[in-house]
Structures are given as structure tokens and as C-alpha cells.
């Protein structure tokens, strides 16, 4: 049974496309036939992050309009065997997507793929609603700041009401939180919301916490999804999150403050001095 996963957030710039690319690679690497679709018509980015922008001939809108068939439009990923990409159109806008068209494409893809990942555009308009409408599972990408959390909350409301599962009264879309750009030391300084703060408001299962990392931007610019950078903490965190999505139990990492050894020593001395003054 094919699983349709939507990567969504409401707010822009929180890491939806980065997450879509990394999850697509991560799931495909584990031997599942996977396709990732860019729903951000007019602002196509996924092909850049996946490093296949020069191979885009036909796109999602061409397929919906019958100007090309799926075989022509699907781009095979050059790094991972079981992964295909369906790029967005850069010259059209989101109104080019129709409910019937999207349904038809998803149905056809379901015949040959195990996982369909829908990279949602930002906002709550047509593009975003179509990306989530047919989903079985949603990964809500959130940054630890109030506006992103508020927007994610709004999206969770839409997932509970504006999806096919909700409209047909079936089992609800399963919701997962992915907290990105997390910086434990900024959290401990009180500059950033903690995972607990975010989950107090959203109250959905946590799929993973991706630390703020230089590797993300480096990967995006090079067209290599960050999950392939196994050295980086962000890459490892994505790999953990993919494992959890596929049902494995992996402990959470990268959530504690990184403390320099000198600072740690200094802190130890501070603490010792404090204790001394207390006893005296």
C-alpha cells in the first residue's frame, strides 16, 4: 500500500524542501521505491536541492495537462537508485493544479512507488491544500519561534478538516512534528523556544529535531541533500528521523547544549566556588 506523505509548515523558509529532499533520499536508501513531487508551482526549488535542475524537461503541470506522460516527466535521482523526482513548473502559477489532475497523477504513481512525498508550498492557499489533500501522513516542519509554531498550528487545523481522510470520515492523517534549525545553546539562553515549549502548543508526536547546521546550506548550494552528509549532525538527525518514520526506535540526539571544554571547566570552577561560599 503506497503511503502519501506531505511535508508542510504554513510558514515559508523553515526547511520544507530540505526536509522533502532528505526524507526522499533517506527512505529510498532503505530500499523503498520513492517519488518526491514539488507542489510549489512557480517557485520551483526541489530540483535545485536535489541537484537535478539541468535535467528537467517536463514537469508536474505538463503531466496534469496531458502534455507529457509520467514516464517522460519523472527524473531519476543520480545518487539513489529507487528515487524519482517530479519537478514543479516555473512558468505557471498554483492555479494550474487541479484536484482531479493531482488525484490522477497520485493514483498513477501509486502503482509503481511505495512512498510519495509531496513538498508543499508555503501558505494555506490552493497549492498547499492540494499538497495535503490526499495525504496519509503529514510531517509538519517547524522552527522554534512563535510565528512558525502559530502557522504550524493553523496547518494542523487544516489537516484535521481539509483533507480527503477528514472529508470522508476515515482515520485521520497521522501528524508528525519535525523541529528544524534547533539550537540548544540558544534555547538554554532563553532566545529560542525549546522542544517542550513547541510541543506544549502543538501536542503531536515528535519525529525528530534537526540542529541548526552549516551543512544544510552547504548541501543546498551543492545540490546534495543534507542527509547524504553523514558526517554532519543535521545529516545524522535526518537519518534518525527517517528511521523513526519507518517504525524504528531511535533515541533523540543533538538536543543538548554543545559546551566548549574550556567553558565547561570554567563552569565547574564557578560551581565549586559557589559551594565554598555557601558552606562558609
Amino acid at each position: 500500500m503506497t503511503k502519501i506523505i506531505v511535508i508542510t509548515s504554513g510558514k515559508g523558509g523553515v526547511g520544507k524542501t530540505t526536509t522533502s529532499a532528505s526524507f526522499a533520499v533517506g527512505i529510498a536508501n532503505r530500499g523503498h521505491k520513492t517519488v518526491v513531487i514539488d507542489f510549489d508551482i512557480g517557485l520551483r526549488n526541489l530540483d535545485l536541492i536535489m541537484g537535478c535542475e539541468r535535467r528537467v524537461v517536463y514537469d508536474f503541470v505538463n503531466v496534469i495537462r496531458g502534455e507529457a506522460n509520467l514516464k517522460q516527466a519523472l527524473i531519476r535521482d543520480k545518487h539513489v537508485k529507487d528515487l524519482c523526482i517530479l519537478a514543479a513548473s516555473q512558468t505557471r502559477d498554483k492555479d494550474a493544479l487541479t484536484m482531479e489532475g493531482v488525484e490522477k497523477v497520485l493514483k498513477e504513481l501509486s502503482e509503481s512507488f511505495d512512498y510519495i512525498i509531496c513538498d508543499s508550498p508555503a501558505g494555506i492557499e490552493r497549492g498547499a491544500q492540494l499538497a495535503m489533500y490526499f495525504a496519509d501522513m503529514a510531517i509538519v516542519v517547524t522552527n522554534p519561534e512563535v510565528s512558525s509554531v502559530r502557522d504550524s498550528d493553523r496547518i494542523l487545523g487544516l489537516l484535521a478538516s481539509k483533507t480527503r481522510r477528514a472529508e470522508e470520515g476515515k482515520e485521520a492523517v497521522s501528524e508528525h512534528l519535525l523541529l528544524t534549525r534547533y539550537s540548544p545553546d540558544r534555547v538554554s539562553r532563553g532566545d529560542m523556544l525549546s522542544l517542550a515549549d513547541v510541543n506544549d502548543i502543538l501536542a503531536i508526536p515528535v519525529l525528530g529535531v534537526i540542529p541548526e547546521s552549516q551543512a544544510v546550506l552547504r548541501g543546498s548550494n551543492a545540490g546534495i541533500p543534507v542527509i547524504m552528509d553523514a558526517e554532519s549532525d543535521a545529516g545524522q538527525a535526518y537519518a534518525d528521523a527517517v528511521a523513526r518514520l519507518l517504525g524504528e526506535e531511535v533515541p533523540h540526539r543533538f538536543m543538548d547544549e554543545k559546551v566548549h571544554w574550556l567553558k565547561r571547566m570554567f563552569r565547574f570552577r564557578e560551581k565549586a566556588r559557589h559551594e565554598n561560599t555557601k558552606s562558609a
Partner: peptide, 8 residues
């Protein structure tokens, strides 16, 4: 009984 989310 379900959470009342932002915008609802």
C-alpha cells in the same frame, strides 16, 4: 474533543 487549532 479534538484540539481547536489556530484559525479554527
Amino acid at each position: 474533543t479534538s484540539p481547536v487549532r489556530s484559525g479554527m
